[in-house]
Structures are given as C-alpha cells and as structure tokens.
Design a protein around this nucleic acid. Structure first.
Lengths: 151, 151
DNA sequence: GCAAATTGGTTACAGTTGGAACCGCCTTGC
DNA sequence: GCAAGGCGGTTCCAACTGTAACCAATTTGC
C-alpha cells in the first residue's frame, strides 16, 4: 500500500496522553471530593509533608510545576490554614513554607489514600511490571527533557 | 535542578503525568511550528485521514476528546479549508466530515513527521520495550476506565 | 560601593478548557 | 401521528492556565 496505515490509537504519545488524563482525572475527583484539594495543592502538601519547610523556588523544582501554579497553590493552602509562611533570614524575597498542625493532620490522612489509589489504579500490573513501567517513564522523561532545549 | 523528594517523585500517577506533559508539549511545539495545528486539530486530521469521512460523534469516540473540543477543532480546520462538511442524509443533525485535497496533502506530510517524532521521543527504548510500554498503557487505560463508573 | 543584571515571588491579562444550557432533529411509545 | 424524551451539535459562561509584566531583594561586574 502507498501510505502506511497509521492509526491514532497506536500512536504512542496519544496513548500516553489519554492514559495519563484518565488516571489524573480519577485522582483529581478523589482529592476534590475528600479534601477539597486540587492536584497542584495536593502536590505541594505531599512535598512539604515529606521534605519539611522549603521555599516556593524549591517547590517548583520538586513538583515540576511552574512558579505561578506553585504560588497559587500555596496561597490557597495558606488561606485554609494548612501551611504557614515564616521569614527566610537568608533571603528577604522568599519565605519558608511548612505544614501547620492541621496541614500535617491532613497529610497523614492523604498519603495512605494516595498510595491506596495508586495501588488500585495499577493493580492490573504485577509488581515487576510496575517497576518496569516506572523505569520506562523515567527514561522517557529524561529523553524528552534533553530534546527540549538543544537541536 | 531536580530536588530529590522520595515520595512524590516515586508516585506513579505523578510520574505518568509529568512524562505525558513533557512529551505532549514537545509534540505540540512541533505541530504548531510546522503546520499551525494544535493537538486536537491534529488528532482530527489523523483520524479523518485514516478512517475517511465521519461525523463529529464518531470523532469524539475515536479521539477521546469531548464534543466541544472536537467541534472547535473541526471549525478551525474547516475555516482553513483542510476539511469539508457534507450533508448526512441519514441524520439531519450532523454532517459527514472529510479531508479536502489540501487536507489530504497536509495529512500526507504530517504522518511521517509524527511517526518520526514518536521514534525520536522513544528511541531510548528498544523495540521490545516500546511494545511492552504500549501494552502496559493500554491495560492501565482499561483499568482506569472501569474504575470511573461508580462501583 | 554602586549601577546593572538576575532572581524569587506576585499580579494582570489573555487564551484555553469543560460543564451546562440550548436548539433542532430523531426515535420511542402509545 | 404526535407528545415526550434523547441525541448530535453549538453556544455560553465560568474556571483554570500560562505568559508576560512587575516589584523588591540579591548578586555581579567594574
């Protein structure tokens, strides 16, 4: 045949995007229903709960979100009393952000639920397949990152 | 500069989302630069080029986009003269949509480029790994889909 | 030591997105 | 054959997102 029959459903980036969206949507529903959190807010909670106090700049690196998204998420969390800002002596432009007691309590509830949801979403994969999947994603990530700037 | 944060960075849905986004962004840049197409528009082109004339309803199923997104993409493509509407005798509410000559020409250019980009983005994976990855994505897709409807 | 450039953070704005209402056609049930 | 309900497609609106402008603090270069 003259033209190779390329179907959208076989196109890897398409499949990746669709899968990622369906997973994200499912998770977003759960967080919104249970905690009233959006995914950006949840990510900030997860990082602060795991890594302790840090600036927005560090949050940008840790969550891979842009600084505006991080700022907005932090503002919401602060207004809800889940995180607190304290001055940064070493740099007057930024603050240290950390979970409040309420924030820690919520973090303690969220993480088991998150991990359980991960387990359920990927239960169709065996443990070895999950590891394999994770490592494939990480490699693709690196490759696409490198492709971004040069060339 | 990636801050190490064991939990979030190991969370599979997060890794999936980040990877999907970096891949999508990379591809979106390419289509926009070369053809002035957004991804939804490209998807419609790909499906029509592969499947021939069909209604928006069928496009919704084939592209996994919602009907508003499909409608908007079709409108843009029609205004650019890449697709054409013809009446649907069997249902007065909808039209058949198909590529024009110009649309077919563009489709002929796009597909090789798309496949090449896929090849480059996933070149870090061997052929067997790519197949594996594809099948893992498909399985996750099915699982998350099933989880959507309340149980 | 100071002007210039850079950086962390914030705000403003414009483009994008998706849910819901809406319109007209079609199907169903009587 | 017609009222009621459903469906394809379109429009509307409100929320979200990202880019760019902006401010203040810090670093750099001379």
């Amino acid at each position: 045949m003259t033209v190779r029959n390329a179907r959208l459903a076989d196109f890897l980036p398409y499949l990746l995007s669709v899968t990622s969206n369906v997973v994200s949507d499912r998770i977003a529903d759960e967080y919104r229903a249970r905690f009233g959190l959006k995914i950006p807010e949840w990510r900030v909670m997860a990082v602060l709960g795991d890594g302790g106090a840090m600036t927005q700049r560090l949050l940008v690196g840790a969550t891979r979100m842009d600084k505006v998204a991080v700022n907005r998420a932090c503002k919401v969390l602060e207004e809800r009393g889940l995180i607190r800002r304290s001055p940064n002596d070493r740099d007057g432009r930024s603050h240290h952000l950390e979970l409040t007691a309420a924030g820690k309590a919520m973090h303690g509830e969220i993480m088991p639920i998150a991990l359980d949801m991960e387990r359920r979403l990927f239960s169709t994969l065996g443990a070895a397949e999950r590891d394999q999947f994770k490592s494939l994603l990480a490699r693709i990530n690196v490759a696409a990152d490198q492709m971004e700037s040069p060339e």
